[in-house]
């Protein structure tokens, strides 16, 4: 069994970030897209903490607190917008929104 190394966590965080990005691009449900954004932000949190550990600094840990705050605010606004859309279109499907185009 190999010893635990910080770079493994970096790989995990990049993989999770890519899953979030793919979810954002591929999924059509807006709620799932919001979740994907959260996934991306949390992947970055993991990344910050790992680098913090590698550098023996506290900065990364502090950053995570700020990112979590911003993520909470962002999902609040996002859900509000999705509700506003649901009221008009009775759907949370991103395929339904194509009124604006060239």
């Amino acid at each position: 069994m190999t010893a635990f190394e910080p770079w493994m966590l970096l790989v995990v965080s990049v993989v999770v970030f890519c899953i979030g990005l793919l979810g954002l691009i591929l999924r059509k449900n807006l709620i799932v897209m919001l979740m994907s954004i959260e996934l991306m932000l949390n992947a970055v949190n993991l990344c910050f903490v790992t680098f913090s550990k590698m550098h023996q600094l506290l900065d990364g840990h502090l950053t995570v607190l700020f990112v979590m705050t911003v993520a909470a605010a962002e999902s609040a606004v996002g859900l509000g917008l999705v509700i506003a859309m649901f009221r008009n279109l009775r759907s949370v499907d991103s395929d339904q929104i194509q009124l604006l185009r060239d």
Binding site: L34, M40, L41, V44, M85, N88, L89, I97
Partner: peptide
């Protein structure tokens, strides 16, 4: 009450959220 405004906001939000995460990474 205007679906076009909703659509603009959602598009802006989804893009802005992803951009924020990319910036942070």
């Amino acid at each position: 009450s205007d679906s076009r405004s909703n659509e603009a906001a959602i598009k802006y939000f989804v893009l802005g959220g992803a951009v924020g995460a990319v910036f942070l990474l």
